[in-house]
Design a protein around this nucleic acid. Structure first.
Length: 354
DNA sequence: CCTCTCGGAGCCTAAAGTCG
DNA sequence: GACTTTAGGCTCCGAGAGGG
């Protein structure tokens, strides 16, 4: 179904009820060169999938890799962890385990909108496409009424107050910590003069983690560039990945990927998470931050408090609101009644009392 | 269970404001 | 004039109600 393409990514597989013991190859003993005591075991590795860009083609199952890694170096305070591999038929979940519900999952893909929904889809608040008749109108047998509406012209001459200057690291003036701002809490005296490093977007199905600070590289792997090529050092050998295994004592491990502890992951002590955006003067949601969970919507009720009657069903059993030529699509978030796409009065969401 | 409604989050982009 | 920020206008996701 085409409307599924914009839906949330599929849920991660359910976490196994029982957490079996980790096999020895998933212990921190893999990394003897780590500073003694700095990152004591256990920490675990995850063998990359064959389609993983870090997968070693010369090793059928790839080299063991720490589950926490930075590729390329992420913004301070963040590392990327591999997404869980798919379950192995007959063997269940491989290591590590999938993240639990509530783990900050990969950002959902941006919703894509068509330039102009047809009048039917607009009225029904349903997904449209660029073809005419659109897929939905064809499906409902109303292809003959599948036409574009007309957009209202934007208002002009509306005066605004002075603009707030945004940080380069977010949509708000509270900047995300930069590489030059010490995660250890040192205050930078020049918060805005250092050119901001640019970071690639977090790969899909990766998970954000915090790391304490760089400096504990794990065994070498190539450091692929965004184009997928590896960077070699002066000797022609691949540069190691900047891995940052977490110190379980300081930064409690995330259960599914590390020591089976109960601690949900949080920002390191010296590295505060990106601050919540200040309330927008207009109350408008900031697209760059995770929105709060939607509030439970309340059913629209009539003057007497009784639920408004549904529109009568069409005889063909298909939807009746918004599919006809009088259906309109217009803003309904600002509370202003405006003309619909056909110039008719806004009948959207108006329920017939008949 | 399925269909339909519709609140409101999210997206696009033009207008207003700022900067060099 | 180019760039940035804001917000108007719109799309459409997805929870919830109600019907079959």
């Amino acid at each position: 179904m085409s409307s599924d393409q914009a839906k949330s990514p599929p849920e991660q597989p359910a976490q196994p009820a029982a957490v079996p013991a980790y096999p020895p190859q998933y212990s921190g003993a893999h990394y003897p060169q780590l500073p003694p005591g700095a990152y004591p075991p256990p920490y675990y590795t995850y063998t990359p999938l064959a389609n993983d860009p870090n997968h070693d083609p010369n090793a059928p199952n790839g080299p063991p890799m720490p589950y926490l890694m930075a590729f390329p170096p992420p913004p301070p305070g963040m590392v990327y962890a591999y997404a869980p591999p798919p379950p192995v038929p007959g063997q269940g979940m491989p290591y590590p385990y999938p993240p639990p519900q509530g783990l900050p999952a990969a950002p959902r893909p941006k919703r894509k909108q068509v330039k102009m929904a047809c009048t039917n889809c607009a009225g029904a608040c349903k997904r449209c496409d660029d073809s005419r008749p659109c897929e939905r109108c064809v499906k409902y047998g109303i292809a003959d009424t599948c036409v574009d509406g007309t957009r209202k012209e934007r208002k002009k001459g509306i005066k605004r107050g002075p603009y707030k200057r945004k940080s380069k690291f977010g949509s708000n003036e509270a900047a995300f910590p930069t590489a030059s701002s010490a995660p250890t809490g040192e205050a930078s005296t020049e918060p805005t003069t250092t050119p901001a490093p640019t970071y690639p977007p977090m790969p899909e199905s990766y998970y954000p983690y915090y790391y304490p600070h760089p400096g504990y590289p794990a065994p070498g792997h190539e450091v692929p560039q965004p184009n997928g090529e590896a960077v070699a050092n002066g000797n022609g050998h691949p540069m190691p990945h900047p891995y940052y295994p977490l110190h379980p004592a300081v930064y409690p491990s995330y259960p599914p990927y590390s020591h089976p502890g109960p601690v949900a992951y949080a920002a390191p002590p010296a590295m505060m998470p990106p601050p919540p955006p200040p309330p927008d003067v207009n109350g408008k949601a900031d697209d760059t931050v995770t929105a709060a969970p939607k509030s439970k919507k309340k059913r629209k009720v009539g003057e007497d408090g009784a639920p408004k009657a549904k529109k009568a069903k069409a005889t063909n059993g298909e939807i009746t609101n918004g599919v006809g030529p009088t259906a309109v699509g217009s803003s309904h978030t600002n509370g202003t009644a405006v003309n619909g796409v056909n110039g008719a009065a806004d009948q959207r969401h108006v329920v017939s009392s008949a």
